[in-house]
Write a protein that binds this DNA or RNA. Sequence first.
DNA 1: CTCCTCACGCATAACGTTTTGCGTCGCCTC
DNA 2: GAGGCGACGCAAAACGTTATGCGTGAGGAG
Lengths: 338, 338
Amino acid sequence: MNSATGIVAVATEAGVSVSTVSQVLSGKRPVSAATRSRVEAAIEKLNYRPHPGARSLRSQRTESVALIVPDITNPFYPLVAVGIQDILMPQGYLLSVNDVALPSRTVSETLRHVLARRVDGIVLTTYGCTPADLELIAQSGTQVVALGQDIGVSGSDYVDVDEAAGIGSVVEHLLGNGFRRIAFVGGEREDFTSSLRHSGYREALLSAGLGVDDELSVFTSFTRDGGAAGARRLLELDTLPDAIVCANDLIAIGVIDALRARGISIPGTVAVTGYDDIEAAGLITPALTTVDNPAREIGRTSARLLLDRLNGSVDNVTRHVRLSQHLVIRESSTVVPH
Amino acid sequence: MNSATGIVAVATEAGVSVSTVSQVLSGKRPVSAATRSRVEAAIEKLNYRPHPGARSLRSQRTESVALIVPDITNPFYPLVAVGIQDILMPQGYLLSVNDVALPSRTVSETLRHVLARRVDGIVLTTYGCTPADLELIAQSGTQVVALGQDIGVSGSDYVDVDEAAGIGSVVEHLLGNGFRRIAFVGGEREDFTSSLRHSGYREALLSAGLGVDDELSVFTSFTRDGGAAGARRLLELDTLPDAIVCANDLIAIGVIDALRARGISIPGTVAVTGYDDIEAAGLITPALTTVDNPAREIGRTSARLLLDRLNGSVDNVTRHVRLSQHLVIRESSTVVPH
DNA sequence: CTCCTCACGCATAACGTTTTGCGTCGCCTC
DNA sequence: GAGGCGACGCAAAACGTTATGCGTGAGGAG
């Protein structure tokens, strides 16, 4: 019914040897034009497609790449995924998207899962990655491109944006608009991205000659619910902040939920800012001031770095690409208080 | 450095034959406890992991499934993806997510790509699927679960929601609120989902005893920009509609963009409704009346259907699961006009 | 005419599994 | 003590590729 057996069927049909068919396919050895066309005719006639399993058995490559993300439901990550596809799919690679946030799944499990499948490369969101995981990666020999930080595995590249500068520009913008008591709601406390954004916040305040009140920093999770929980903690303070800088847009949206539930006007009483510039940031009321995070370009760049490695054209230095971003000013921070 | 050669290394290490190791792994034949533990020790010691390529060479299965979606950037689809992962990942399957909307990519190409990789099954969004594509699927013998419509391939299942009823409930709600001149903005004209939602709209009007004015139906694409374009066409009419029913939330958001750009108040002058209940629907101002579309459950269901097939426990009837949904009433439709 | 050199094609040996038909051994039954 | 039977383990044959070392003509150089 369907595609006939394999390369030997093609060889028989074309009256040549198996190796010749293989050579026609790979082009690694010269084949006369006449033979080539006989083989091609046979391939066409039998509707032959090479068996990727057999191929990978020989070559020890699977022509597939895994993307590991903390939460594909965060609209930032699908964009990363399409960026990767932009580059990888034309080369015949298959991209598998693996979401860690499935019920009670961990990075280690997910990593084991994709390593067991012998993917050629991994684009890894570092969130939740333990030293044991890095050890696993290192000894597996699989190529990895990290998103957001250097994972310190030899021969692995990473791509990031200047998080501290990004958050810094948000804080400066708020200061410029007269906000002074500026709070911060981060993601998971141990998360690297979260702490980068937190230091950016601290440094911006310090370099403006202001003090940093630790009471004004809370950590939660990179989700809408997390943001709401964080905001409620800030609302217990004796004196409210007049602005809340959030580590991503989802958190900011949650913060807005919580403030609004308390009847607090935004930005009249408290300004709120986000990070990533997901689509919802422009839709919510008030529209969210945020930092655009070039997700698709991050995906493309990481795929290119990975591809270089897979083609073996890189020595084992660690390469680092830093993409640029810019502040997006919207309503949630524009009104000057009092 | 890394995981040693293969099953024969394990066999040697444990002092047994290759087949015995295989039997320990698969459990398809009894193995004495003593032997089993020697083998397990060897596996542990050598950090052995079976080679999936070799395995699939024998078994003719890849333990992988492809999801083909029109646009992963539409927040509906990532949810479908995690739903599929919920079911498939625990079984050791790898899910590859394939976005058709990459620059100038077609369903046929994407299909060929995943079929060439010999995936065991495909979860297919029918959007943009030609008869030739279906032919390709049928003769490949790959298991397919379709989303949204029966693709008519023997032995393929599909899962959908009652689109017509969903849109119908929107229209009834609008009629109940006094809206009378109700327009419709669809996705691509030839898209099946789009036309289902369109018929739902027509039928609801007819069964309420109202006429259907074809001038009030426009088709565009399932995106925000598409929605804006559609709205602009409606705005050229001599008399404005007083409500616009959109085929999905993205379109509705675009419609709101366009209306707002013309200074038209929503829902005061024109009400707008969406479909899917993506997160942004609750965030935009005015919050969007819409129909919740159980994306994650759609993913889970389709994965279960696929798994049944892959386990061979189904004869070749076409199974159909219809999931339920409900109207979500928000501000964009609640004000009664005049 | 002989020898060398290409250009082309072939046979064969991996690659790492799973499956299946056969031993072999020990023990039970009569 | 003979026969039978279970339980366990092994060898070998696939599965479909790609890489590699050789063979064989044809044609050119001497």
